[in-house]
Design a protein around this nucleic acid. Structure first.
Length: 295
RNA sequence: GGUGGCAUAGCCAAGUGGUAAGGCCAAGGUCUGCAAAACCUUUAUUCCCCAGUUCAAAUCUGGGUGCCACCU
């Protein structure tokens, strides 16, 4: 059997429809690799596949939790590995599709995600809130003088991670999971045009109603990852009346462009054996290219 | 037509005589338990134009141009 197929790429690049077509042709089943499409009730802004699309081939790891429930990369890694072996055991081809780089890396590299300590993490988080990052930097310098130079001292997440686990991971090695990663690439201007059109389509599909639902149910819980998803937070100030709809749309557009840029940076620099697929190719040409490179 | 105000990077903007803050945008990058997160780097040889004063002007003076407000 061939490697597990991964369709990666920036937002609005057309990953989902390409993956769906591949699944149909190659007896495949799709596995979500997007950190926001795991949330139930968040459908439009996350560009989740429609009910009709999901009915065409099996879709895994979508709609796993409610927006206020915890879900993180280690949960993803565990569930994705299980889904892959489940699909393969039935003789089907798993196809991972999504744009969350960390989720891909958790499978591509030997991420172990060890030494979690919720108690410490909560403590340091409250310390950060009350006394600022300087206090955490102080503690890190005192507690781990040899390691502190290896972390990004200005980044609260990294700093807390060091304090929590007492270690800094250096070398990352390729995992034993066979993955063939394709990156659906678009020239920046073209992708920006696609993003703009997609946001227009989202609004027509009822984005504002969805945002309002999320806002009324979870709007107070600003710390939730789901609430910070693109296409929600940008409209909250509109709903509160402090920003016009036009401004909210503009912010939505900018956030999405910036996200696409980060995805591109991630892809360029994290995976050495990536195969780029030019987004301008038509569907048959894309599939042909994948076929040729898929061992 | 008169009077007043304002002209600083793609946008917003600080700076009133000593050698161009900051924010946004943009570009490049980092990444092992929130990742659609968080963080880092870069970005005005020059302040609307011309002339003058001064050792020194974005800052002062005169003229011009443009925009805004009020008056007629």
């Amino acid at each position: 059997m061939r490697d597990n197929l991964v369709i990666f790429g920036p937002t609005a690049s057309g990953k989902s429809s390409l993956a769906l077509e591949l699944a149909k042709r190659y007896d495949g089943e799709l596995i979500n690799m997007d950190s926001m499409q795991v949330y139930q009730t968040m459908d439009i802004a996350t560009a989740k596949p429609s009910r009709e699309e999901m009915a065409q081939v099996p879709h895994h790891l979508f709609d796993l939790v409610l927006p206020h429930e915890d879900f993180s990369s280690q949960d993803y890694k565990r569930m994705a590995l299980r889904a892959i072996s489940d699909i393969r055991s039935r003789g089907k081809n798993p196809i991972l599709v999504g744009g969350t780089g960390l989720y891909l890396s958790s499978l591509y590299y030997d991420y172990d995600f060890r030494n979690k300590d919720d108690e410490k993490r909560n403590y340091y988080n409250s310390l950060l809130k009350e006394e600022g990052i300087e206090r955490l930097q102080e503690l890190a310098r005192e507690g781990f003088p040899e390691l502190v130079d290896k972390v990004d001292i200005n980044n609260p997440h990294r700093l807390i991670r060091l304090l929590e686990t007492g270690q800094v991971l250096e070398e990352k090695t390729r995992s034993s999971l066979p993955l063939k990663v394709f990156y659906l690439d678009w020239e920046r201007e073209l992708l920006n045009g696609r993003i703009e059109r997609r946001i227009g389509a989202m609004i027509e599909a009822g984005l504002l109603e969805e945002v309002e639902y999320i806002f009324t149910h979870y709007g107070k819980m600003e710390y939730l990852p789901s609430i910070r998803g693109i296409g929600y937070k940008e409209y909250f100030s509109y709903l509160k009346g402090t920003r016009s709809l036009e401004e909210a749309k503009e912010r939505h557009l900018i956030s999405t462009r910036q996200y696409a840029k980060r995805q591109r940076t991630w892809a360029r620099n994290q995976y050495s054996d990536l195969v780029y697929i030019d987004g301008r190719l038509d569907l048959e040409e894309k599939i042909k290219l994948i076929e040729e490179n898929w061992r």
